[in-house]
Design a protein around this nucleic acid. Structure first.
Length: 417
DNA sequence: TGAAAGTCAATAAA
DNA sequence: TTTATTGACTTTCA
């Protein structure tokens, strides 16, 4: 496999994590890698490598032979348009028939799944930690490299060649030697065969379990240990599975909201997709709020609605997000919260900064007793947005109504959705 | 210390 | 075969 995920000028000492080794290594030690060895050609684009199309993000100040680490480059990087970058990367990969796996392992040092996720659901720059920004900086550098595609093509050819070689030798040896553990019953790792452990079977939650967990989330995004225990026993799951599910769900919903936020801001996404590819609310089975299932994006919007929020942490997410924005970027979570939580106080900036999600600008009058707290009218910038917002608001109202009904029933089995 | 962020990797879906 | 999804885990951060 590849051990050189970074495309940087030759003598940049970047500590990068390789998927295989799971450890850091210096790019300096990878001079033999075709990508790296050619990468001295990397320079800020004097022309537009995209062939006249707008270059996503701001060209990075490629530090040449300054010996900057990738982390330093990330720290120095101007704000990048993550959405535009991923859009461009996807475009380039598709146009040149290059796979996410190759790109991820070679350029980003990430696995295919991570790359897919990253490309489909980029978080806004200001929401990313330094570490989270790293792949975007790498992508940007890659896009800036006029030879990026041919290098990756070369890698692809090399990989194919190596694969054929392995296959040949395995055929002649009469066994598989391609290093793949696919289908193996052992955990990944470098244990000797004698130490190999049996793989833990992956838990796959059934639709009913997921549904129940989502409902529970709607009741309490931060369930108490007791609730988790109850859920686990009711659903016949391990408590760790329930805990993990809540972590993942919160995190993924948050990310969905980031994307909605980007769209609401109207800043990016002028592409033909008509918006974020991650807005799976419209995807069948995931988020049709009218058929009794819940849209992922909408669940989060009920933080602070007073629906079964007996756990004081129910509003924590809300608070933290608002706080995290203080002094920072002027859009989103705080704004988002204003729009969605109904906790906008008189002193808050809510309502001043224009749009929130769904154009919900004044929810301060909401209470747990009110069913319709989401005005179907918004302050969208254009009629299309407005319609969309109206629809969403209507959906939300509907859901909230049902949620409130459900919230009055303690026994989850009585919840009706 | 708990939550968020980031990622892996198995598996499903296309 | 490639891409998307998602449960689990590790790291980071407040």
């Amino acid at each position: 496999m590849f051990s050189s995920p970074l495309l940087l000028p030759g003598n940049i000492t970047a500590r990068v994590r390789t998927p295989e080794a799971g450890s850091d290594e210096s790019v300096n030690g990878l001079a033999g890698d075709p990508l790296i060895s050619q990468s001295s050609s990397l320079k800020p684009p004097s022309d537009d490598p995209s062939g006249g199309e707008s270059q996503p993000g701001t060209p990075l100040p490629v530090p040449g032979h300054s010996g900057l680490s990738i982390q330093e480059m990330v720290a120095m990087s101007p704000e990048l348009d993550t959405y535009a970058i991923t859009k461009k990367v996807k475009e380039v990969l598709t146009d040149n028939n290059l796979g996410q796996r190759l790109f991820g392992e070679t350029i980003l040092g990430l696995t295919q799944g991570s790359v897919s996720d990253l490309l489909a659901r980029p978080k806004p720059w200001h929401k990313l930690s330094l570490k989270g920004r790293e792949p975007f900086v790498r992508m940007q550098l890659w896009l800036q490299d006029p030879h990026s595609v041919e290098k990756l093509m070369d890698m692809k050819r090399l990989e194919k060649k190596a694969y054929m070689k392995r296959r040949l030798s395995s055929l002649s040896d009469g066994h598989l030697v391609d290093g793949s553990l696919a289908g193996s019953d052992y955990v990944q790792g470098s244990q000797s065969p004698g130490q190999q452990q049996l793989k833990k079977p992956r838990v796959v939650l059934g639709p009913e379990e997921k549904e129940a967990l989502k409902k529970a989330y709607q009741q309490k995004p931060y369930p108490s240990p007791k609730t988790i225990e109850e859920l686990a026993s009711q659903l016949n799951l391990k408590t760790s599975t329930v805990i993990n599910w809540f972590h993942n769900y919160r995190s993924r919903i948050r990310r969905e909201l980031f994307i909605e936020e980007i769209q609401a801001a109207g800043g990016v996404g002028t592409g033909s997709e008509g918006g974020s590819p991650s807005l799976r609310g419209s995807k069948s089975g995931e988020g049709d709020s009218c058929d009794g299932t819940e849209s992922e994006g909408t669940a989060e919007t009920r933080h602070g609605l007073g629906i079964g929020m007996d756990d004081p942490r129910g509003c924590k997410d809300h608070d933290m997000e608002a706080e995290s924005e203080a002094g920072g970027s002027n859009n989103s979570p705080a704004q988002l919260d204003c729009a969605t939580s109904g906790l906008a106080g008189p002193g808050s900036s809510c309502g001043q900064s224009g749009l929130g999600l769904f154009g919900l600008t004044d929810a301060s009058s909401s209470s747990s007793a009110s069913s319709t707290i989401l005005p179907a009218s918004g302050h969208a910038r254009n009629p299309r947005d407005n319609n969309l917002r109206k629809k969403k608001a209507a959906n939300l109202n509907n859901i909230i109504h049902r949620l409130e009904k459900a919230a009055s029933k303690e026994d989850p089995s009585e919840w009706e959705f």
